[in-house]
Simulated scan of single mutants.
Amino acid sequence: MSATILGSAERGYEAVAEAFAKAFDGRPAMGAALHIVRDGHTVVDLWGGVADARTGRLWGQYTPSVVFSCTKGLVSILAARLVQEGRLDYTVPVSQYWPEFAAAGKAAVTVGQALAHQAGLSAPRADLSEDDIVDWERVTAALAAQEPLWPLGTGYAYHALTHGWIAGEIIRRVTGMSVGQYFSNLIANPLGVDAWIGLPAAQADRVAHLQVSPPLSALWADEASKPAPNWPYKAMTLGNALPADLVSDNGGFNTQRIRAAEIPGAGGIASAEALATIWSATVVPTRGIKLLEPPVIAEATKVQSEGASVFGGEPPYSRWGYGFQLDSPARRYLDDQCFGHDGAGGQVGFADPRRRIGFGFVTNWMMGPEDQRATEIISALRASV
């Protein structure tokens, strides 16, 4: 039985709507939404499926969901805005803003290197617990004290979760606000969108319940069987803090305790409409808000990290600027000028400066490398514009 797709797509975007509907084929427990903004105007607004398979609650127009590493893209917008305002510099040491970070040989690590996954802190050396990761000061103190996992300047490795605490603490030191507070003040509240880094309790019952597809679970089970230290695996679990899938039926990012904590490497909660609106506002005035100007976008999206990481891995490889995920064989956008970030399980948000587009796709049916849902939607969009 196919999911009922609600919403609308403007004329010329029929193929995009068809690709979105196709994403539900063979996935009866899936819920998802797609939102596309062009020139500040919504051209695609679609949703369907099940927000919570346990209760049968359907996905609504503004259903929020955990967007995982899409949160890194949102935090990178915050950092770029501070650069634009002259309050932050990608080229200076992190320790200029956060003196404790200079410990254990990290005095020379720059803000840009930290944002580009080059700081050597992709995983904690000491195992963290769930109690640890909901305590901001405890995690940031541990990262500040830690010796890097590899020598500075010798490569990069994806900081799957630690990236958010590092970037977020830099932002806190500059602004005097937590990353969640700054995000709300600068972006979510002015744009009037359903997006949070640190979910308020009043919103808890609206969030989609996440499920993990069998191939993704099998992938992480295989990773778990590899000999220690398996730093890429530990980058996801942080030791004992999270399941490798990031969720279980009643654990990880399916719990309000984790969602309420400010975990800016993966814990953002947003609707597809929110993601698309935010990314639109980075490149074109949207709802009266323009977040970034072309010079800072050009600086922030220069390639900093690409190819194989210091821990190896198989292609296709991603490519990053200063926190922003760029077009690459691992994540195709509309062209090489686009910037954004995808997230575990299939989430995608990005901006296209040339076509003045903001894009958001969110789903609660988490898939692994076999996932082509967003890729096919983006391909249809590319052909339509």
Rank of each mutant, 00 (worst) to 15 (best):
68 F>K: 01
200 P>T: 08
73 G>N: 08
114 A>Y: 09
157 A>K: 01
103 A>K: 15
223 E>M: 04
195 A>Y: 00
270 A>R: 08
76 S>G: 03
58 L>V: 01
120 G>M: 00
231 W>I: 14
42 T>R: 10
142 A>K: 14
346 G>K: 00
115 L>T: 04
242 L>M: 11
323 G>T: 07
199 L>S: 10
117 H>R: 05
228 A>Q: 15
317 Y>N: 00
268 G>I: 05
90 Y>Q: 02
168 G>N: 04
199 L>D: 09
248 S>V: 04
41 H>R: 10
63 T>C: 11
43 V>G: 02
112 G>N: 03
103 A>V: 06
384 S>M: 08
65 S>E: 14
347 Q>V: 06
305 S>G: 12
220 W>R: 01
256 Q>F: 14
301 T>M: 10
259 R>D: 03
142 A>T: 15
259 R>T: 05
65 S>N: 15
186 L>C: 08
134 V>F: 05
23 A>C: 11
109 V>H: 05
246 L>W: 13
94 V>M: 06
311 F>V: 10
214 P>E: 04
80 A>C: 00
301 T>W: 11
260 A>I: 10
362 V>A: 06
173 R>V: 05
25 D>T: 09
355 R>L: 09
22 K>L: 07
21 A>E: 04
123 A>W: 00
197 I>D: 03
376 E>F: 07
258 I>H: 05
365 W>E: 07
178 S>K: 11
43 V>C: 00
21 A>S: 09
149 L>H: 14
122 S>Y: 13
250 N>T: 15
179 V>N: 09
35 H>F: 08
366 M>N: 03
112 G>W: 04
215 P>L: 02
29 A>Y: 02
49 G>F: 02
128 L>G: 04
327 D>W: 10
371 D>A: 06
12 G>M: 09
41 H>V: 11
272 A>Q: 07
